[in-house]
């Protein structure tokens, strides 16, 4: 287990370096250069040259790369172009919000989807098709609803009409209750599609496992259905489920961008959209790395969890 974790950690480091390098050079592929792209039509001549100087674009490429790496390591991410705030400060205030939404969504989705999917699988296994069809059918319908649409509908019903949840307002961590109320709808919207995917996946995985020989063995040993279901079936079905949770995290990050915009939440997604709109090259570059690293880390966590669940996993 330790050797495996170390190996995966090493992979994590290698991937991280790869991601950072890729982002750095991808940004240099912009036609003209970054300064010109940032400035658009607003600057010319000497002003543009000054911006280039400021951004260090006149240095040789490898020096730029070196500075870029060094700055990342000491968390000096530069300043935004429009507001001239340190990018690091921006991330420090926005990241916890987005991460809270993502984490809460995953937890909520798992808490609903796994029992639901297991129940559907068990019903199908026992030949009670009606309940199984009901659950899987409902999951299908929910999965078909795009989250930008559900977000608008929920906003309309629960915030604007019923007034149960605030539709706007600042997020202050000193008041946890208000944060909860503020983030409740986005989390709900995002978790709906996650529940749909995850419950269907759980159903398939558990149904497969229930017809395995070792489940029959457990029954023949006289274990109760509940124990068979949780100790044997679900534990074995957990492997594909973990994979799907890990993968759908990327999907979820996409979702946060849209949902944050609709519910006007100052998370990473909002920062990203603002950055793109104002052609803030420095900011977008940092956010790209932020998303990529988050994803790499989730993959790392999935791998470790996978191994912990299944001792057969070697690579």
């Amino acid at each position: 287990m330790l050797a495996y974790s170390l190996k995966k950690l090493l992979q994590l480091v290698v991937t991280t370096i790869g991601v950072v390098t890729l982002v750095f050079f991808a940004m240099r592929l912009i036609p003209g250069d970054a300064a010109a792209a940032m400035a658009g039509d607003t600057l010319s001549g000497a002003a543009l040259e000054r911006l280039r100087e400021q951004m260090g674009l006149n240095e040789p490429l490898f020096v730029q790369f070196w500075n870029f790496l060094r700055n990342l390591l000491i968390f000096d991410l530069g300043r935004t172009m429009t507001t001239n705030l340190p990018v690091s400060d921006l991330i420090k205030s926005a990241a916890p919000i987005t991460l809270s939404i993502a984490l809460a969504t995953i937890v909520l989705a798992i808490a609903i989807a796994i029992p639901l999917g297991t129940m559907a699988a068990y019903m199908a296994h026992k030949g009670h098709k009606t309940l199984d069809n009901l659950i899987t059918g409902l999951a299908m319908i929910i999965a078909l609803m795009p989250s930008f649409w559900t977000a608008l509908v929920f906003l309309l019903i629960f915030s604007l009409t019923l007034g149960w949840f605030p539709a706007s307002g600042a997020i202050s961590w000193d008041d946890p209750y208000s944060v909860m109320m503020r983030l409740a709808l986005p989390i709900l919207v995002l978790s709906m599609s996650q529940v749909a995917i995850l419950s269907r996946m759980t159903r398939t995985a558990v149904l497969d496992v229930l017809s395995e020989d070792y489940v029959r063995t457990a029954r023949a040993m006289g274990w109760s259905e509940l124990r068979v279901l949780f100790r044997h079936a679900l534990k074995n079905a957990a492997l594909p489920i973990v994979t799907v949770v890990g993968l759908s995290f990327g999907n979820l990050l996409n979702g946060t961008v849209i949902v944050e915009a609709i519910f006007t939440i100052p998370g990473i997604g909002t920062v990203l959209i603002n950055g793109i709109n104002s052609r803030d090259y420095q900011l977008v570059q940092v956010l790209m790395i932020f998303y990529a690293l988050l994803f790499v880390f989730i993959n790392f966590a999935t791998d470790i969890l996978y191994r912990a669940l299944d001792p057969r996993v070697k690579f």
Partner: peptide, 22 residues
Amino acid sequence: NALRGRTVGTVFQDPMSSLDPV
């Protein structure tokens, strides 16, 4: 369930899949 495994034991065909792998 009280009889299964206690009064009657069972051995199945395929040893590769009859034990819980995890």
